[in-house]
Amino acid sequence: MLVLAVRSLPVRRLPFHREVSAMLIAQVIVNWLLLGSLYAAVALGFSLVWGIMNIVNLAHGAFILVGAYTAYWAFTQLHIDPFLGLPLTMLLLFCLGWVVQYVAINRVIRAPFLVTFLLTFGLDLLIADVVQLLFTSDRRSINTAYSGFGLTLGTLHIPFDRLLAALIAVLLTAALSLFLQRTRTGNAILATGMDRDAARLMGIRIDRIYALTFGLGAALAGAAGAMLVELYPFDPSQGGVFTLRAFVIVVLGGLGTPWGALAGGLVFGLAETVVPLLPGIGPGYDDAIAFALMVLVLIFRPRGILGKAFYA
């Protein structure tokens, strides 16, 4: 039988007391913003690839995995801090994404959705298996010198690493948005997303744009992975859960813009922060929450919160 256990991400929740106080609410809000921004990073590349290429990249989770293990490897072997090594991880993942797109996905880009869907799932299985071969299925974590330190205001606690990750996530969102809006290449990507054939007629090399887009998506996934491994223990079976969450986040936020990923990430983070606090519900229902949210949004607000028809 297949064993492809997709365990849910252990969200490290801060100590929590039942007495509702202003400090407590502030802490919940801080937790929510930190988690939500991180989720934006998880979904950003997924949103880009889906919006521009109309491909739901089920290998997204595998790219996150590769990013996480690259950062882990660089930290343990080369003693590179995961945050400082972020550009390196992203570059490596960009190359991986570029190759995957050029070798595999460009060949089926016009096929019905089931084909691309299935293909990316196959790639996910393959990549996750290779990662498991290289790193075994043990749980890994990174402990930097500053792990556990943070800003403390009264009882309010903001860990440095999570704050840094959240800031980088917002920065990446802004950078992607600027890149798409302000640069020639970015505009070419947008144009291709809106109308492939028209873009081709304007002299844009579609296959290169697609490879670039997919590479960018993989690089962003890699960044998310590198930050995740810094914050949570990680093992090779976790790729799938991030793909599913990226999907939910993109559906929540809408496919329109990079900011949709941020909006979706914040909504998703809110649900995951608040729902377990509700009376009668404990922790551990992450997938159920994700799924219920997604179905609600699909039925009531099919274009998501910031919904726009095209990626822009």
Binding site: V56, L114, M294, V295
Partner: peptide, 25 residues
């Protein structure tokens, strides 16, 4: 009743989500 109102990717992921959420529950 609800899920078959979705199409394509959305239907695929919604069904995937049902299975994953049930496994967890």
């Amino acid at each position: 009743l609800p899920v078959l109102r979705l199409r394509g990717h959305y239907f695929a992921i919604a069904t995937l989500g049902i299975a994953e959420a049930t496994r967890e529950l």
